[in-house]
């Protein structure tokens, strides 16, 4: 079942096409990888989906509903959570309060919000840090807080924007475990990632873009062996070996 779909997405910044005619469909329950070199438009696609800026043209559908014109907060309420590549912790609040604020998207009373937040912190492995101010967390745990906060809004679709970047190898393994655990809960995931170890191991399907345009899509093996992808990452001479 297709849960999420973008059709002919286009975004111009002035005369520059940051995203140019990108279309893809995401199946319910899968991990969908979005890859591409720096500046290829991955984060822009996320920002278009979560409506941080308006699309130039194209349509976005979630659960057969056209959400292109939804405001950012309504996108969240509709069931799409996201994390930020440049983490945005609510710095002077405790980790727990960060997650409680998110939990209020689904529950009304403080008691319920606290319960949901504690449960989510436990699930994401951040419960031992709950009393600490978010700004004093190290980067690895800040990334984890981003995921925890998004999970507390009970999303059906989760957009992960480079949540593995800047992590050390052992943190990387726990991050992968967490993402797979989230998938087990039935949450569909779209992940933007540079670290190939992560994206190749966990993605069910991958969509590769460069200069805002689709260059390949398919299973991780297919995409990894695609000449256009190799060219985009390593340069033309490697593509034809």
């Amino acid at each position: 079942m297709i849960i999420f779909k973008v059709e002919n997405l286009v975004k111009y910044f002035g005369g520059l096409a940051a995203v140019n005619n990108v279309s893809f469909e995401v199946q319910k329950g899968e991990i969908f990888g979005l890859i591409g070199p720096n500046g290829s438009g991955k984060t822009t696609i996320f920002n278009l989906i979560s409506s941080y800026f308006p699309v130039t043209s194209g349509r976005i559908y979630f659960k057969d509903q056209d959400i292109t014109a939804f405001k950012t907060h309504k996108i969240c309420k509709a069931g799409i959570g996201r994390t930020f590549q440049v983490v945005k912790p609510l710095g002077r609040l405790s980790v727990l309060d960060n997650v409680i604020a998110a939990a209020f998207a689904r529950v009304q009373t403080k008691h319920e919000a606290r319960d949901l937040a504690l449960e989510t912190l436990e699930f994401c492995g951040l419960a031992h840090r709950k009393e600490i101010l978010a700004k004093s967390l190290p980067i690895g745990e800040r990334k984890r807080l981003e995921i925890t906060r998004a999970m507390a809004t009970k999303p059906e679709l989760l957009l992960l924007d480079e949540t593995a970047a800047g992590l050390n190898p052992s943190e990387l393994d726990t991050a992968i475990d967490l993402i797979l655990k989230i998938q087990d809960r039935g949450v569909t995931i779209i992940i933007v990632e540079h670290i190939m170890k992560v994206i190749m191991t966990i993605s069910d399907r991958i969509h590769a873009i460069n200069f805002g345009q689709t260059i390949a899509h398919g299973s991780p093996e297919e995409v990894a062996n695609d000449p256009a992808v190799i060219e985009a990452y390593l340069g033309e001479e490697y593509a034809h070996r």
Partner: peptide, 26 residues
């Protein structure tokens, strides 16, 4: 400040973009 509103006010103070992504109509 002990209610949902309070948490939402603080979220807006700390980071308006993050607040929006958490479903808060800032």
């Amino acid at each position: 400040m002990n209610s949902k509103w309070g948490y939402y006010f603080l979220s807006i103070r700390e980071d308006q973009d993050a607040a929006e992504s958490l479903g808060i109509n800032t």
